[in-house]
Design a protein around this nucleic acid. Structure first.
Length: 372
DNA sequence: AGATCCCGCCACTGC
DNA sequence: GCAGTGGCGGGATCT
């Protein structure tokens, strides 16, 4: 152990939260989402984030599943930005629905159909070589595919919320596999990884199931309303601004990390607040099409979750909107976190500023509508 | 106690 | 053979 590890010796100072995949993902995204960044080197990223390369593989695989990154070459990934997410989700949805339509789902539930139909693997015949079977088997179990199927679960079925162990059993590729039970717990572990990355991007939220009281997850971004076919949420979100707690961390020294729970908690509060806001939007603001979202470039996403991209264009009563705004303000003041960390305070100030700016714009828009 | 998930071993892939 | 990749599950930590 090197002398620099001495500070990590005390077990009471270790907090696994500081090393979570979600936090690492936020930091990774922060690294990527910068002016002029087009290509990401894994070595470089691992160095800058101070983590082992293995962790970066986890993250890029999951990010790739929603289109944010795409593999360019060995060790090299292209940064596509958050604007690529709606398109990727749309594609996954189409793929999932296609799978559903090609397979009789009498005996299978939706998830099993999704899990059993991987468009890129489907063609494999009975007479294949054992080698190709091995590769397919490996691909089938890949984190990326699991992440994509997890997304499909929300977008191709009526599933509103699902616990990870349920999702794991639902997404088991071969429902006749006698080893299914064993691999289920492993898949649940992987789903936790995926969920943490999606959480850090605010694609999903964690809730308590009203029935069982057990933890479950719900998709909250760009989810189309199955009845109207219109997107229910416009989470033009920038997860990089969610990393309160300051510096790019997830440093290699293990276990005995100094606790930073106060910042972590504040972070959670902000997230909850944001979700509350977006939930309101979700119900009332159903006008922005996926195509419109696709047109947003990364710059608009930088504006953060309270940006004008969510501004109602029509069909929402102005009064209604104003009332919403006031509710959000109430929530904001109620949950305003007390940061002890300077960087975090500044970051939160940025949010507040963006939010206030948006309010002014919203008010102006409202004014214009009234004049008409 | 059950939920969560970090960590790193080691098998596999491609050159 | 070697570097890159990533499945996997033990066991530590959190709730």
């Amino acid at each position: 152990m090197s002398s620099s590890d001495a500070q990590w010796k005390n077990p009471s100072n270790y907090s696994r939260k500081d090393k979570s995949l979600g936090l690492l993902c936020s930091n990774f995204l922060k690294l990527c989402d910068r002016e002029g960044v087009d290509s990401i080197g894994l070595d470089n990223a691992a160095d800058q984030l101070g983590v082992e390369r293995r962790r970066i593989y986890d993250i890029v695989n999951i990010l790739e599943s929603v289109g944010v990154l795409s593999r360019k070459a060995k060790n090299q990934y292209r940064w596509n930005g958050y604007s690529a997410i709606p398109k990727a989700i749309d594609l996954l949805k189409k793929e999932g629905l296609k799978d559903l339509s090609t397979v009789s789902s009498n005996r299978h539930n939706v998830a099993n159909v999704i899990a059993c139909n991987h468009s890129d693997l489907k063609e494999k015949g009975e007479g294949e070589t054992s080698g190709s079977h091995k590769i397919d088997n490996r691909k089938e179990k890949s984190l990326m595919l699991l992440a994509q199927n997890f997304v499909k679960l929300f977008h191709c079925s009526d599933v509103d919320m699902i616990s990870l162990d349920k999702a794991a059993s639902a997404l088991l590729g071969d429902i006749h596999d006698p080893m299914a039970t064993r691999s289920n717990s492993s898949k649940t572990r992987r789903l936790y990884d995926i969920a943490n990355v999606f959480l850090s991007m605010n694609l999903i939220e964690k809730i308590r199931s009203p029935d069982s009281g057990k933890p479950a997850f719900r998709w909250i971004a760009w989810k189309e309303n199955p009845r109207t076919g219109s997107p229910a949420a416009t989470k033009s979100d920038d997860s990089t601004r969610r990393t309160f707690g300051a510096e790019i961390t997830n440093t290699i020294p293990k276990r005995c990390r100094a606790d930073s729970s106060s910042d972590q908690m504040s972070n959670g509060q902000v997230k909850r607040l944001k979700v509350a806001k977006d939930d309101e939007l979700k119900d009332k603001n159903k006008v922005t099409s996926t195509e419109q979202l696709n047109e947003h470039d990364t710059k608009e996403f930088v504006f953060g979750p309270f940006g004008p991209a969510s501004l109602p264009k029509s069909g929402v009563s102005g009064k209604e909107n104003l009332k919403q705004t006031q509710n959000w303000e109430e929530l904001a003041s109620k949950f305003r976190p007390q940061y002890q960390n300077k960087a975090a305070s500044e970051l939160f100030a940025h949010y507040v500023e963006a939010w206030e700016l948006w309010q002014v714009e919203a008010a102006n828009e409202l004014h214009k509508q009234h004049e008409h």
